[in-house]
Structures are given as structure tokens and as C-alpha cells.
Design a protein around this nucleic acid. Structure first.
Length: 424
RNA sequence: GUGAUUGUAGCUCAGCUGGUUAGAGCGCCUGACUGUGACUCAGGAGGUCGCCGGUUCGAACCCGGUCAGUCACCCCA
């Protein structure tokens, strides 16, 4: 078994029938994005390592320890993309798209992070996300959040909660950071080892600590609310007003921080209890400083990324036991002569019918063919044996109603019509 | 990277304090029924017990290592 080659750790093969659920979700994603006026962007799966170091932030965990980085044969440092936002902005800069005003893109595809796999966490994961650039106002934040929420809402997922927060901008975030440092530093020795490490790196993250040792100091820590600058305060207030007006439920959660360096002002997550410890299915926010830090024009932007695997886990938890309705036709030929007639007929039916047409080609008993029809979850069996051949007919069996009818073995169109009638 | 836990048939799992030929259910194949499917019944195929090494007369079982799955920490989608 393990002497055979297996899929690399943290990756998975997506096989039928599960792959059909991926396809269904992807279709809804494409449709949703189109309705919001977003165009699909596809970027390379690998990029220059430098892009992520500058874009994501060199002290982030993603860049420090989670990237798939290697030298190619030309000695270039290459990295499998660990996220989409930096590549999308790189592409936009490369093609001078910001010169054309506000832009809206979405993407669907794999990302790669070298992590220990666990529930909802893989080394190759898939994300759907959007980026909206060129708008400084809260309307863009609202648009992006409502797009994400619409995907959740339209699937009837009821245990998902939208969490929003603001983490300030260049003006007030440094002030808040300083006040947190001033608050925690005197208690450094009493903090958990994790939080001691977080203090200089990203003190905001201490607020989200699960360690009891940190709790008393977290509770007395200054709130961002008290330090927020007027601009950020107004932006956040306006966003909340839009969400209220749209009846999108949310909670303000000061612990939502986000681990990537590029976020400013609005951050949000959609969280579900169906996901175990990796409870975030969708995370995003505003990143007004990223484009200029990549050497482009000062360009405000908002976006999010949504984990496809995690989203499908939520759908599983919601209605994992749903049975698919029977659909399609199992074409059954008994004997070589019947097969010679039925094979071309099946091909014609495939041209005409929207339903799938299944067919096995072995010389097997009728019983075995009908079992195959059950496995394929077919609604009908189209049976052609020597009797039917002699009579110039086929038997159309409704596998659900368990009824037979004989239909003249003529044009495929007549058959399709018969099937169409039966399908209502 | 840290910790816990689990690897036996396609799937879900038994397998006693080590004992020689490793089992069950489901699924699959064949037949009872030249040709009528979720039901019966009878046969059959399918396993280097994750892998490597050690201990032992003897290892699925004990020990070490390794790989992988699962879960949590960290972090994130």
C-alpha cells in the first residue's frame, strides 16, 4: 500500500460523486460574481517569491514558514501562491489596469501552504475570492461583504456568523499598537510564551489568545474604539449603517485581527461552528496600502477569500444526507446484435437529451445491467434484446415507478420525446 | 514546528495474556431465474495486517524508527 505512490501530505483527490458538488458550487460562484459585476482573473499558480515577501509581509507566518519555495533551473526563486491578493495586484499593475479606474475581479483556484494538516486545513486548498479596487468609501466594503454573505445566505447556511471589525489605518493603528505594547510590556513575564512572542510581532493578536494566563491582561487592555481616528470611525460607522439597511446580520468582534500585513480599516470573517478549530470560512478586508507597497499608484482596495473546502464542509453539516433524485437513462443491450443497434442510438440520445445516458458494453445478464442502472442512479432503463429487436421495439422501464412501456425502435427523436413526456 | 491518537479486504470494523491456514458485515462477481433492479438463498474473487528494522522457537499483536490519516495548539481559507 504505502510502497505505492500516494497523494502528497495535505492534498486530496476529488472524485465523483464529490466532484459534482465542487462543480455545482463553482457554477454558483461564477454566476454570483457575474451578477455583482465582477470579471474572472486567472493568474499563474507560481510567482516570484519576492511578490509574497513584499505583498503578504515578511514577518507573517505564511511567508516565514508556510511557503512552497524553490529555485527553478534558471536560479530564480519561485513560490507556489499561498494566497491570491498579491498575485492579482501584481497582474493589475503589470497590465496597467489601475489607469482605467475602479476594477472588480474574482478568482477561483488552488493555493499552497506548508502546514500540518487538520480539519479544514490542507496544504493545497482552494479559494474563491474577490478584489474591488479604486473606491475609498465604505460602499465598496459593503459590496464585497454582501457578495460573500449572499453566497452563504443563498445556500441556506444558518449557523454562519458575520464578524466585522476595524483595525485602523496608518494614522491610528500605530498609536493603538503603542498603547497595547505599553499595556502588556510590564506583564511580559506573566504572559503565555506564545503571547510573549506575539508582543513585538503583532500585539493585536494577543487579544485573541486562548491561554488563561493572558486573560486578565486582555480584559484590561485598551480598546481600539478609544483610539480610532475620526476617519476610521466614520468609515466603520457608515459600513455598519449599510449592513443594517441591507438586513445583513453581523457582530462587531474586536478580536478579528487578520494575520496578513496588508489589511487596513475594515476586516471581517464569516465563522461557522461546523468547521472545528478552523472556524473561518471566509476572511477579508480593506487593504489600501498594498498596491503602493508593490510599487503601484496609491489605490484603495477591498476583498475577501473564501475557502472552498470549508464551505463544502458547512454544506455537508447542513444537508449531507440529501439523496439525489434519479436522472438519466441506462441503455441495456442484450447480445451483440442488439448492441450494434443500441450503441449508435445511445449516441443520438446523448445529442438530444439533457439527461445522462449510461451504457455498459459487456455481455452480461439483464440483472447485472439493472444493478448498474441503480449504481448510476438512473431514472430509466432502455432495454433492447432479441425479442425487441424482432418486434422492432425497445422497452422503456421507469426504474422509480417500476413500469414498462414498449416504444417503436425508430428515430431517437421519438424516444427522446417519450422520455420528455415521462419526465414532465 | 509542538502535542495527542489511529493505520487489518473496495468500505466499516473484529482479531483474547504473541501460537502456526487472519475473520465478519456491506460492496463486487457468478448462479438459483436463456430476459426484469433496492428482497431471498448458494458459491466465488479480493489481504506483502502502512513500511523498515529489532526481540522471540514463533509477531497483525511486544520494542524502535519511519510514512500516512485524524484532532488540537500555532496560524489561517
Amino acid at each position: 500500500m504505502s510502497s505505492h505512490i500516494t497523494a502528497p501530505r495535505g492534498t486530496q483527490d476529488i472524485l465523483p460523486p464529490i466532484s459534482a458538488r465542487w462543480l455545482a458550487l463553482e457554477r454558483r460562484i461564477h454566476d454570483l460574481a457575474r451578477r455583482f459585476g465582477y470579471g474572472e482573473i486567472r493568474t499563474p499558480i507560481f510567482e516570484s517569491t519576492e511578490l509574497f515577501v513584499r505583498g503578504v509581509g515578511e514577518t507573517t507566518d505564511i511567508v516565514e514558514k508556510e511557503m512552497y519555495t524553490f529555485l527553478d533551473k534558471g536560479e530564480r526563486s519561485i513560490t507556489l501562491r499561498p494566497e491570491f491578493t498579491a498575485p492579482v495586484m501584481r497582474a493589475a499593475l503589470e497590465h496597467k489596469l489601475f489607469a482605467q479606474g475602479p476594477q472588480r475581479w474574482y478568482y477561483v483556484g488552488p493555493i499552497f501552504r506548508y502546514e500540518r494538516p487538520q480539519k479544514g486545513r490542507y496544504r493545497q486548498a482552494h479559494q474563491f475570492g474577490v478584489e474591488c479596487t479604486g473606491f475609498v468609501g465604505p460602499e465598496a466594503d459593503f459590496e464585497v461583504i454582501s457578495l460573500a454573505w449572499e453566497l452563504v445566505r443563498s445556500h441556506g447556511i444558518d449557523d454562519a456568523v458575520l464578524n466585522i471589525n476595524t483595525i485602523g489605518d496608518d494614522e491610528c493603528r500605530p498609536r493603538y499598537r503603542e498603547s497595547l505594547l505599553a499595556h502588556f510590556r510590564p506583564h511580559l513575564d506573566a504572559l503565555s510564551p506564545d503571547s510573549q512572542r506575539r508582543l513585538e510581532r503583532n500585539p493585536l493578536r494577543i487579544l485573541d489568545s486562548k491561554d488563561d494566563r493572558d486573560r486578565p491582561f486582555v480584559e484590561t487592555a485598551p480598546t481600539f474604539e478609544s483610539i480610532l481616528c475620526d476617519g476610521c470611525r466614520a468609515h466603520f460607522g457608515a459600513l455598519r449603517a449599510y449592513l443594517d439597511a441591507a438586513n445583513i446580520p453581523y457582530v462587531v468582534n474586536p478580536k478579528i485581527v487578520r494575520g496578513l500585513d496588508y489589511y487596513t480599516r475594515t476586516v471581517f470573517e464569516i465563522i461557522s461552528g461546523a468547521l472545528g478549530a478552523q472556524s473561518t470560512v471566509c476572511g477579508g478586508g480593506r487593504y489600501d496600502g498594498l498596491v503602493s507597497s508593490l510599487g503601484g499608484p496609491a489605490t484603495p482596495a477591498v476583498g475577501f477569500a473564501l475557502g472552498i473546502e470549508r464551505f463544502l464542509m458547512m454544506l455537508d453539516a447542513l444537508h449531507g444526507d440529501a439523496v439525489a433524485p434519479r436522472a438519466g437513462v441506462q441503455a441495456i443491450a442484450l447480445g451483440a446484435q442488439a448492441r450494434g443497434v443500441l450503441v449508435p442510438l445511445a449516441t443520438e440520445l446523448r445529442r438530444i437529451l439533457a439527461q445522462p445516458v449510461f451504457m455498459d458494453y459487456e455481455d452480461r445478464k439483464l440483472l447485472a445491467h439493472l444493478k448498474a442502472a441503480d449504481r448510476n442512479n438512473a431514472r430509466y432503463a432502455l432495454i433492447l434484446g432479441s425479442d425487441e429487436l424482432a418486434a422492432g421495439e425497445v422497452v422503456l422501464r421507469d426504474l422509480e415507478a417500476r413500469t414498462d412501456r414498449r416504444i417503436p425502435l425508430g428515430r431517437a427523436g421519438d424516444l427522446a420525446a417519450a422520455l420528455g413526456e415521462e419526465q414532465g
